[in-house]
């Protein structure tokens, strides 16, 4: 089944700022048998990229972009009710993002994918101070730390965070995953930042994490 028309309808709802319509489109697709992961990767993600492009070409305002983000976030939360929860796998993910709330949708998708696979997921919000991240990872005895980086200018912050985590006792066992546009464009950044691995999308992130943490 092709999701192109769903994408078109969903994007239109975002442009109109119509959250009910956006939810209807998504719910209908899901009840027709589409896997929620496909909906995330083939509808929400490209639609939000398009929203970013529309803003960049002066066809959408920041306020509209904020609304689109909020709508997609609430739709994702709504749809979660349809997900058949995988039995707990006994793994814990701590996720954070560098940059504003406007950029956290990507890492949220990643978080949801992990949760669907039975992981315990704690999303810490954007721009958490390294000490807070370390405390949380230690308290939860986390297996994996996911850091989302949205802009090149965020790379140094992420590197500092990784260094701080590595220096902490939990750093000995904690694996670190980085992701985001700057790293997708230059995958070498992953190593220079000191992370263990990177993934280009949420599905790949889960796959790689499962392999790394055997």
């Amino acid at each position: 089944m092709t999701l192109h028309s769903v994408y078109d309808d969903y994007l239109e709802a975002l442009k109109q700022g119509d959250r009910r319509q956006a939810l209807r489109v998504a719910q209908k697709t899901l009840t027709e048998g589409t896997d929620i992961r496909d909906l995330y990767l083939d509808v929400f993600q490209p639609a939000m990229h398009e929203v970013g492009r529309l803003w960049e070409t002066n066809q959408m305002t920041v306020a509209q972009e904020h609304l689109a983000t909020a709508i997609t976030q609430s739709v994702m939360a709504h749809l979660y009710g349809y997900v058949f929860a995988h039995t707990a796998v006994g793994r814990t993910l701590i996720a954070t993002c560098i940059g504003g709330e406007l950029h956290e949708l990507g890492i949220r998708m990643v978080s949801d994918f992990f949760e669907m696979e039975g992981w315990e997921v704690y999303y810490l919000g954007a721009n958490m101070p390294p000490d807070d991240v370390i405390r949380m990872a230690t308290d939860r005895d986390a297996d994996l730390l996911a850091i989302s980086v949205t802009l090149n200018s965020h790379v140094p912050y992420a590197r500092e965070l990784i260094q701080a985590v590595r220096a902490a006792p939990i750093g000995a066992k904690l694996k670190i995953m980085v992701g985001g546009q700057p790293i997708n464009r230059a995958p070498d950044l992953c190593k220079t930042m000191g992370a263990d691995f990177t993934a280009s999308n949420a599905r790949e992130a889960v796959q790689l994490a499962t392999e790394v943490l055997v």
């Binding site: 909020a70 976030q73 609430s74 939360a77 504003g100 709330e101 406007l102 949220r108 919000g125």
Partner: peptide, 8 residues
């Protein structure tokens, strides 16, 4: 936006 995030 933060509120939406916290709600989620």
């Amino acid at each position: 936006l933060q509120l939406t995030s916290e709600l989620a």
